[in-house]
């Protein structure tokens, strides 16, 4: 790891000031992606601004309209174990409980996962399928606006994700096919029956990161059943291809995972 300096802050305002004052800073939350990336010298921030212990960024609360607001530094373990999330959005609780391994889930945070927008991360699928709102210290974004491509988001320099709000949904489920070695999703599909109709979002498979499947959504609007998805799959041209699987394989995997998710929801 290249040299860096560490700065723990205790408020969002303090974090913003520290970020603005630094040359080439990075926000550090759980560090489960950032620290390994720095160890590989793929990232070399001059300063780390540690927001993990900022109280105002932490915790899960149910809103008056039934939406669930999750603070940015809330860990995957906390989301997976939360009674409100398990009751209202079981697909989200299950997704959080299958990220990485138990030890990563104690440290890794929802805000960090969304801000990094790894093409194989799980949370972006839930955020896009549920139409979540991502709140920052400067404003807010719909999930559609937020995810702009592989490892790319609408976040401006030094903008801090503060919370994510998931609106109500009648049914939710997530099914993923993890890479047997890395456990990252080779295809992960989140399905949701929302007040405005079914929504389907896919992670791990697309070249541009997370994406929706309008054809699947239309089929599920006709009939919410795994069978109604038939052979609907994304265009293989838009899928990732690597030593773990061809683009055609991943396109088919999206169909299989979507059916499993619908059956489980």
């Amino acid at each position: 790891m290249y040299e860096t300096s560490y700065n723990r802050v205790s408020s969002v305002t303090e974090a913003a000031t520290a970020l603005d004052a630094a040359d080439d800073p990075k926000i550090l939350a759980g560090g489960q992606t950032l620290i390994p990336t720095m160890k590989q010298r793929l990232a070399a921030p001059s300063e780390l601004v540690d927001i993990r212990q900022v109280d105002e960024l932490h915790g899960i609360s149910m809103q008056a309209d039934g939406a669930i607001r999750i603070g940015a530094t809330t860990t995957h373990a906390e989301v997976a174990a939360n009674a409100d999330v398990r009751a209202q959005l079981p697909g989200l609780a299950s997704l959080a409980g299958h990220i990485g391994d138990p030890h990563v889930r104690y440290m890794g945070t929802i805000g960090g996962s969304l801000a990094n927008n790894d093409p194989a991360a799980d949370y972006p699928a839930a955020a896009l399928a549920l139409g979540a709102t991502i709140t920052t210290n400067k404003g807010s974004y719909s999930a559609e606006e937020f995810f702009t491509g592989m490892f790319e988001t609408a976040l401006q320099e030094n903008e801090i994700v503060t919370a994510v709000t998931f609106p109500v949904a009648q049914r939710t489920a997530y099914a993923k096919f993890p890479n047997p070695a890395s456990r990252y999703a080779m295809a992960g599909v989140f399905v949701a029956q929302t007040p405005s109709g079914p929504r389907v979002a896919v992670t791990g498979a697309g070249q541009e990161g997370v994406f929706r499947m309008p054809a699947m959504e239309a089929a599920l609007a006709e009939n919410w059943a795994a069978d109604s998805l038939g052979s609907i799959q994304p265009d293989a041209q838009d899928m990732l291809a690597d030593i773990h699987g061809s683009a055609e394989y991943r396109a088919n995997l999206v169909n299989v995972m979507a059916k499993r998710a619908v059956a489980a929801a």
């Binding site: 550090l28 620290i35 540690d50 373990a77 104690y106």
Partner: peptide
């Protein structure tokens, strides 16, 4: 793995300063 405040975490993916 070590227990940090009772939870098993990866000490190779955590800075000493974070654990302060």
């Amino acid at each position: 793995l070590v227990l940090m405040d009772g939870k098993a975490i990866k000490s190779c993916s955590t800075l000493a300063a974070q654990a302060s």
